[in-house]
Design a protein around this nucleic acid. Structure first.
Lengths: 111, 111
DNA sequence: TTGTTATACCTAATCTGTCAATGTATAAAA
DNA sequence: TTTTATACATTGACAGATTAGGTATAACAA
């Protein structure tokens, strides 16, 4: 959350789910993907990232499994569940609504 | 903040400043204006509203003065300062950036 | 007349997501 | 051999938002 500070609060879970919807990923990779998608402009702090994973796993929105690379490096992969897809859908809708509200308020009255 | 929950967190100050940029208003009226602008979909809880006013006043982004109506009702009006206009401009820019980032992440890769 | 609704202000305690700081561990590169 | 990148994770502090409470007046309905 290095660039935009507190202003993205509440959207973290949605962003993680959006990344995981494309493919299973592990924490470090999720951040890399977020950076790729935003041309390096955005990534999460590790604390926020893993806290979010914990939260989502507790809600049965993601599940995790360990995989080992050739060179014995362990990675914890996360996979989105049907519950997670449902939440993502809801959060996207909420996002669209919130976006619309903000735009409506920012638009000036010309009467 | 009744409809969209935590998802608008961090934008409260921007929204208040946007309303006050159009005209001086008092707390209760600000909420009415927010509701008008969003077709009844959005308003702030009073606690959030007055906390935000306090915060903005401390940062010299708004100033306040009391006015009385004919029927002795006292209203505390808020007026945006040059500092507030500057902050609003910054927050709008941040909002555009945050919006772009989110859209970039939500967009799927089609390759 | 009494109760309710709308108007109008405000604060304290609590909740929750984010961040800074810290920790562990391995592999690769300088 | 030290630094950088990779990879996981937790703790304490911070700050914005909500819940719940408070005061007070005016208008309206029962």
């Amino acid at each position: 959350m290095n660039l935009v500070g507190d202003i993205l609060r509440g959207y973290t879970d949605m962003l993680l789910l959006a990344v995981l919807e494309e493919r299973d990923s592990y924490g470090y990779q999720v951040n890399q993907l977020l950076q790729e998608k935003t041309d390096g402009a955005f990534s999460l702090t590790e604390a926020t990232l893993y806290t979010s994973f914990k939260r989502l796993e507790k809600q049965d929105c993601i599940v995790s499994y360990w995989l080992e690379t050739k060179n014995q490096k362990k990675r914890k992969y996360y996979s989105i569940t049907s519950n997670g897809k449902k939440l993502l859908k809801e959060k996207k809708k909420e996002w669209e609504e919130a976006k619309a509200l903000i735009e409506q308020v920012l638009q000036k009255n010309h009467q």
